[in-house]
Amino acid sequence: MHIFESPDSGNIYFGNIIIDYEKGAIFVIFTACSKNCPDNKWSNYVSKSLDDGQTWSKPVNISSQIGAFQYRGGPSLGVQKKQPPHIGRLIACGHTEPLSVDGVFCLFSDDSGDSWILGESVLGIPFGQKKVDGDYLPDEATTVELPNGDLMVNARNQYHFHCRCRLTMVSKDGGETFPTEFVRVNEDLPDSACSAGLAMFDDKTMLFTNPNNENERVDMTLRWSTDLGHSWKNSFLIFPGISAYSSVTTMQNTNSNNYTTNIIVAYERQIGPVSTIALAVIDPHGNLDI
């Protein structure tokens, strides 16, 4: 799949994939800069596919709409809102670099991806200064819409604020703002500061994947919450070795007479000197296919 090529072998970072179910379109949002990246002025692009990813439109530079900065989306799936407010809105959340000005924020579109708006940021503290262990800095983020229409972001806790665990924040206006009173730490989600996966299984159950370890990137684990992320009491070990970034989603098993839903986890893993992207399929009975 070829979407974009830097003319001078510069830097390109892919971020979010968003599906517009109303229009049958898939969007990819990414950021790019020339090899030397003068003044750290990045360009942010959107490309669209109308044939399930077989072909892609010429990337559109949206820097004039959201700003010329290094938008590192996710790395995760974006969402399209199904509940009010802002039904149909496309939302992609991520962070930026350098870490001194980092934080979590969302881009959103209310016109099927024709234009994009940058929401307010949840910034690191102290802002604009070098961080040390224990400082507050939400980083790589993954997003779901809750049944009541709220948007929940689960973020990497870069400098282990409060604990070696995850941060979550909630927006009640479709990603435009994340009030401080809805930001919390998830002490029952151990994390060494790594990207993670988040998805809704159904209206009551939320899925989460990451290396389940406070100090190392090992033990890729699926967790599920039956109270929409307030607690995480259930877990399933996918891979016990070295593992890192992951993404989780669901897929209907059409080979089954009762159309069961499988959980799909794509994740990085290392066996010996070889690092690969692995795909795990977990059925409702806990059977694992890797």
Rank of each mutant, 00 (worst) to 15 (best):
E140H: 11
D139S: 08
T96C: 12
L137K: 12
I117C: 02
E120W: 02
S100G: 03
S115P: 09
S115H: 10
W116P: 09
G67S: 06
I91Q: 12
Q83L: 01
Y71P: 01
S76D: 13
G74A: 07
P84W: 00
L137G: 13
P59V: 13
A68D: 10
L118W: 08
F127A: 03
I66Q: 01
N61T: 01
E97N: 13
G94I: 07
G74M: 04
L99A: 07
V104D: 14
G74R: 03
Y71F: 15
G134M: 12
R72I: 11
T96I: 14
K82F: 01
K81I: 00
H95I: 01
G113H: 06
G94A: 13
V104T: 13
S76C: 10
L137V: 11
S64K: 09
W56D: 08
S100N: 15
S64N: 13
F108V: 06
S76T: 14
G78Q: 05
H95E: 15
V132F: 05
K130H: 08
P75K: 15
Q80W: 02
W56R: 07
D133A: 12
Q129R: 08
F69P: 02
F108L: 13
L123K: 11
L137C: 10
I125S: 02
G88V: 06
S64M: 06
G94T: 06
E120H: 14
K130M: 07
K81G: 00
I91L: 15
I117P: 00
Y71S: 08
P98G: 05
P85F: 00
G128I: 09
I87W: 00
G103A: 15
Y71H: 11
G113P: 09
A68F: 15
H86I: 00
S109R: 12
V101W: 02
L77G: 15
P85I: 00
D110W: 00
S121A: 15
D102H: 02
D110S: 01
D114A: 09
P75D: 15
V101H: 05
Y136I: 13
G124N: 12
F108S: 12
F108A: 09
F105D: 10
T142E: 06
T142N: 13
D139N: 09
Q129G: 09
K82V: 01
E120F: 02
G113A: 04
R72A: 14
I66K: 02
D135G: 04
L99K: 11
F69S: 02
A68G: 05
K58F: 04
K81R: 04
K131W: 04
N61R: 04
V79Q: 15
E120A: 11
K81W: 00
T142C: 12
D139G: 01
V79H: 07
G103M: 07
Q83M: 03
S112M: 04
D111P: 03
G134H: 06
N61A: 05
S63C: 07
F69L: 04
G67Y: 07
G78P: 11
K81H: 00
I91M: 12
G134Q: 06
F105I: 07
Y71Q: 07
F127E: 06
V79D: 11
S109P: 13
I66S: 02
G134C: 06
V132I: 12
A92K: 07
T96K: 13
G134Y: 06
K82T: 03
E120C: 02
R72M: 11
